[in-house]
């Protein structure tokens, strides 16, 4: 099964990070991604620019409305994702738990819908 692992973290905390801590975090992500690729379970993964760069689009009555910022104000923001191929939910949970962001923020696991 494919699962999307959504990484939610406090942007405010991430931006306040000291350079050494930031470097350590990035090294953690590098190691995690290499291991995931080596296990054959990696499908895709990216980090996202902060929500200050986000634009939300709605189409209402044929008009496109673009507004600044994310859809909802939350304490933690979507900062990146991995798309993985996992055996089952327990496997996906084990992978998610190794994402460095799991130790400071939270990971939402969403099974990918299969259309047959």
């Amino acid at each position: 099964m494919q699962y999307l692992l959504l990484i939610y973290e406090s942007e405010a905390e991430a931006q306040a990070m000291a350079p050494a801590a930031y470097g350590e975090m990035m090294a953690g992500y590098g190691g995690f991604t290499r291991d995931l690729v080596a296990s054959g379970k990696f499908k895709a993964g990216d980090a996202l620019q902060p929500t200050s760069t986000a634009t939300t689009v709605r189409v209402r009555e044929g008009k496109t409305l673009a507004t600044d910022g994310p859809f909802a104000e939350t304490r933690e923001q979507l900062g990146g994702y991995y798309l993985v191929e996992a055996g089952d939910l327990d496997d996906a949970i084990a992978i998610a738990a190794r994402i460095p962001g799991a130790a400071t923020g939270s990971i939402e696991i969403r099974p990918v819908m299969v259309f047959s």
């Binding site: 699962y3 939910l89 327990d90």
Partner: peptide, 14 residues
Amino acid sequence: RLAGIPFVAPPPEA
């Protein structure tokens, strides 16, 4: 069913 919760005993570490 949809989230893929498996019918297996948890591994020792869990």
